[in-house]
Design a protein around this nucleic acid. Structure first.
Length: 309
DNA sequence: CGGTTTTGACCCGCGC
DNA sequence: GCGCGGGTCAAAACCG
């Protein structure tokens, strides 16, 4: 799998229905892991974009996750600067993290990815995983032609959900499915259907805890969230995350909430529209709400700062 | 009828 | 060099 080397951020605040874990992947080989520099915090998105480094712990806080409960720690590095080893070299950014420990039970599964660890198994001890390889191979080599893609930043999170596909406001087209080595559950590959948008995502269910879905986003959206989502689009759109989307758990019942768990958008852009609360998904009707986007922006920075060790 | 899903084949990096 | 395994392609099948 590709996920091997990622760190995962896990948060279990919403244990009842939703548990969300964040995982960060790194690219393969490099070891880079820098510590997040509090002074230069950036938004989640930015981080992903590679513009800067960010501390996921902080992120967790932002989302209301408390690091304490789960230890999340990891460092991230923007790849731009980082010479990553891989072949890739692209211009994308990568995020690498070292290891993270996560707590509890879930993490193990989180590791779902662990399968690969074998190969990589580098440092991480926790099962959380490790890996990194994803980057290595993961990169799209598959692509045919010569275009290699660089590795793009990836961000994964685990969500406790019965459905595999979390709605995040974007439209995705499935382009492949593969069996996961140590898991009875297959991994599905999706690509953003918007033209020119190269964002991809992988969705797989943890074999250890089937109730947990591991979603990995790769790349950054070059467009706003399509407004046609069922009603919620608007909300989603507000965030216009550049890279990640916030997943939401679709309820089987049919109603879904805006995704917005993450919504951190570029801080510099505050285009926020009104303020919509970000809600975090929930499977049933429970939703968790976060502060308005605008607020978030304000908040985020402070958290980062404060978080700093 | 257009877009999406399914699914086997293919590609490619890595470890042995 | 070979096999393994992850990731992608692409044609056919589906679906609204």
């Amino acid at each position: 799998m590709s996920d091997e080397g990622q760190d995962l951020y896990y948060h279990d605040q919403f244990q009842d229905k939703n548990m969300i874990m964040y995982k960060q992947f790194s690219s393969a080989n490099y070891n880079s892991s820098q510590v997040f520099d509090p002074s230069s915090y950036m938004s989640f998105t930015e981080c992903l974009q590679g513009s800067s480094n960010m501390d996921y712990n902080s992120l967790a806080n932002v989302f209301g996750l408390s690091p304490s409960s789960s230890e999340v720690f990891s460092s991230v590095e923007g790849n731009h600067q980082n010479p990553v080893a891989d072949q890739v070299g692209g211009g994308e950014t990568l995020v690498s993290t070292q290891n993270s420990s996560v707590s509890s039970s879930s993490n193990s599964e989180a590791a779902g990815a662990e399968e690969d660890s074998e190969k990589s198994k580098k440092d991480s001890l926790i099962q959380a995983e490790d890996g990194g390889e994803s980057s290595k191979k993961g990169n799209n080599k598959g692509k045919k032609k010569g275009e290699k893609k660089d590795k793009e930043p990836r961000f994964a999170f685990m969500t406790k959900s019965e459905v595999d596909q979390l709605e995040d406001g974007y439209r995705w087209r499935k382009y492949g499915q593969k069996a996961v080595k140590n898991s009875p559950y297959p991994r599905s590959y999706y690509r953003c259907t918007t033209q020119k948008c190269t964002v991809k995502k992988r969705v797989e269910r943890s074999f250890q805890d089937p109730s947990v879905v591991i979603t990995t986003y790769e790349g950054q959206h070059t467009h706003p969230v399509p407004t046609s989502l069922r009603g919620n689009a608007a909300a989603a759109g507000m965030f216009t995350p550049s890279m990640l989307t916030t997943p939401r758990i679709p309820m089987s019942a049919g109603s879904s909430f805006p995704p917005d768990l993450f919504f951190m958008q570029q801080s510099h852009m505050n285009s926020q529209t009104g303020s919509t609360p970000a809600s975090i998904y929930s499977q049933n009707s429970q939703q968790y709400q976060l502060p308005d986007y605008g607020l978030l922006q304000d908040i985020v920075p402070s958290m980062f700062l404060k978080q700093e060790p």
